[in-house]
Design a protein around this nucleic acid. Structure first.
Length: 255
DNA sequence: ATGGTGGCGCGGCCA
């Protein structure tokens, strides 16, 4: 089973790139974030033409998440436990024996922003949701744009980023809490190149200079992480004309 | 360089 995550920063703009990528990589599941589309505008036909089914939770202009899959989803979730968030950032579904939770974690803007408090509150709600999910689903994948770089080796210049948004201690503590519930960042199960990142700012030629962060993660429950055969970041889409600022992360599980 | 670029949508917000 091959599963991937990609923050596309507008599915309208990136649709052709996403379809080309699906044709090349052929994942069983693709979790998308920042689709920036209303549900009535979701381009399902393009995915159906490639043999995929679609599930989405969108809104105008901002946010929006989707799951592209070979199988049919059941038990769909669009809000964290105890939340009625007008920002559409969550999409959970069951596919056979696999439970998938696709997340677009709030960015937080800066640590003195109200948006940072929203991010921290959101991550507390996520804690409750994941405790519940882990109790119910043995095979759980939680993936998406976490907007948190877990460790200093996930940051191009840790000194420059110290205490900044995406790396601040409270955010990292929230991610640690989540992992301690029983989820593994499968990228770090394997040897990886130094300075492996999944996001680079559009500004200041950050991609060319590899000034990035690894903030797009695939977390797996114990039985799944033991079955993980690889996890890699595919930097090819970031090299295209008019790319997303994020690039896909892919993991395979031998099931 | 306290800026820079990109998406949405047409001014200003968000990342």
């Amino acid at each position: 089973m091959k599963i991937a995550t990609w923050n596309v920063n507008s599915l309208r703009v990136r649709l052709e790139q996403v379809c080309d990528w699906l044709g090349k990589v052929n994942p069983d599941f693709l979790a998308l974030q920042e689709t920036k589309l209303t549900d009535e505008n979701f381009p399902s036909a393009a995915f159906e033409a490639l043999g995929y089914q679609t599930l989405f939770s969108g809104q105008p202009t901002y946010n929006g998440v989707a799951l592209i899959s070979r199988e049919t989803p059941t038990d769909v979730l669009t809000n964290l436990k105890g939340m009625q968030d007008p920002q559409h950032r969550v999409l959970g579904a069951t596919y056979g024996k696999i439970r998938i939770l696709n997340l677009y974690v709030p960015n937080g803007q800066s640590i003195d922003s109200e948006k940072y408090q929203y991010k921290l509150q959101w991550l507390k709600k996520l804690d409750l949701q994941l405790a519940d999910d882990l109790a119910h689903y043995e095979r759980l994948v939680v993936l998406g744009d976490f907007n948190i770089a877990p460790e200093d080796n996930d940051v191009h210049d840790p000194a420059a980023w110290e205490d900044d948004i995406l790396v601040s201690p409270l955010e990292r503590a929230a991610l640690e809490r989540i992992k301690k519930l029983g989820l593994t960042d499968v990228f770090r199960l394997f040897d990886q190149e130094d300075k492996s990142f999944s996001w680079w700012d559009y500004r200041a030629a950050a991609f060319r200079r590899n000034r990035g962060l690894r903030i797009d993660l695939i977390l797996a429950s114990k039985s799944l992480s033991q079955a993980c055969s690889y996890c890699r970041i595919d930097t090819e889409p970031r090299k295209l004309e008019r790319p997303s600022d994020h690039t896909p992360v892919v993991a395979e599980f031998s099931l």
